[in-house]
Write a protein that binds this DNA or RNA. Structure first.
Lengths: 226, 226
DNA sequence: CCTGCGTTCTTTGTATACACTGATGGCACG
DNA sequence: CGTGCCATCAGTGTATACAAAGAACGCAGG
């Protein structure tokens, strides 16, 4: 694999998983030493991260990990709602009902997946991801899918602000099942509405749980101040 | 100004204004010679263009100007509709009515701007751009604005496929005026509906006029085949 | 004549040296 | 003691040399 890709992937996951906190300065020389590659691929990786919005060029001098906070949650979900509601509508018009009927079945029974011992809820999240993938495929719109993909990066990042409790996940599965059912029925109005409802619940839950965690996530202003 | 920025700006406008046609191979050495800079800033520019979707990495070997055609028009307008309808809704809820009342007035009288001698319709397009800016400001959502900004690049590019005739511009001005009025009235449902209507007319017009021009825009497959 | 392999060549990927710019700290002057 | 200027320096911006990988072409064998 190319060194620039490795550097990009490493930095990307570091930022998304909060090992690199907002405001952290990403110095080229420091990173090139830490990752064991020269500055050239590092620059390429930083450019990609900046384009993605995970980092920002700092007024000519270096790039820093971009800020993200509860304020951004509202904005993020506004965009998410715009994109996912429309995607759900279009999927209802264009999708193969059989595919979404199957997904509906699985999601309706997703409670079983949550009783397992896996603390990462891998099977559960995979199933939800499959719904997203199916919607994307049914919509068949490159530009819309690209916009959603860009958005999801930030969603993953902000999701780390909260913990997912089983009760919420069970509810979320039901909401997803409702969306899948509406799409299977070819009912775009309901699909859109169900998506709106689901996103509202999700946002409220995130705001509720994140508020408890946030204090400990307030960092020192980027570079060690004694 | 930095060399990488100059290279980026030059290539970007070359692509948007169809001086570089889809499928054109963007070789690093060739570009570095043509633009008089070394390969390093060229690489940076190409990375930015790829992130924007104006160019695409060609399976390991170089990047090419990305394709855009009438098929993409549908997809582009689907995303545009999703974003702009929601933006209009939010602007209706949050915008300063006075601002949009003024814009409504100006747009209602935009017919006067079209009688002028300027063939580029500078004043007209500036007024429309002001509406976009006002909506963006009223929405106040960084992520939504960013998504719209990314989208508009492609819209400008595809717009070059068609010519704008005065009759259509006059109608478009009325449609824009209707949107501005709905926002000024704080009526989000009407603002969204008016946007939907406007985009539908625009798309139909583009498809209608572009069809005539497209044949002459079918290029040889990238590299001269005898 | 077609097919498969090997060589060569073009083009990108990476490393590194150098230039330049903006910041920071100290020193001198008011 | 405060302020402003200058020097030093850290760190990015650019150029270029070298390495590696993929593609195209030609040649040989069937």
């Amino acid at each position: 694999m190319r060194a620039s890709e490795r550097a990009y992937a490493a930095l990307r996951s570091d930022i998304i998983e909060w090992r690199l906190t907002p405001g952290t300065v990403l110095g080229e020389v420091e990173l090139s030493e830490r990752l064991g590659v020269s500055r050239t691929p590092i620059r390429e990786a930083l450019a990609k991260l900046s384009a993605e919005g995970l980092a920002q060029p700092q007024s000519g001098r270096g790039v820093v990990v971009s800020e993200i906070s509860l304020d951004h949650l509202d904005e993020l979900f506004e965009l998410r709602s715009a994109l996912e509601c429309r995607a759900a509508e279009l999927a209802a018009q264009r999708g193969d009902p059989a595919v979404f009927r199957v997904l509906h079945e699985q999601l309706a029974n997703a409670g079983e997946l949550l009783t397992s011992e896996d603390p990462t809820r891998h099977d559960y999240y995979q199933l939800v991801a499959e719904l997203d993938t199916a919607v994307d495929a049914a919509v068949g719109n490159h530009y819309l899918n690209q916009a959603l993909k860009n958005l999801r990066v930030h969603l993953v990042r902000v999701r780390r602000l909260s913990q997912d409790n089983p009760a919420r996940l069970r509810d979320a599965a039901r909401e997803h099942a409702a969306i899948a059912l509406a799409i299977a029925n070819g009912n775009s109005a309901v699909a859109s509405a169900a998506t709106t409802v689901h996103l509202d619940y999700s946002l409220r839950h995130l705001l509720g749980t994140a508020a408890k965690e946030l204090p400990q996530l307030r960092f020192p202003p980027a570079k060690g101040s004694s």
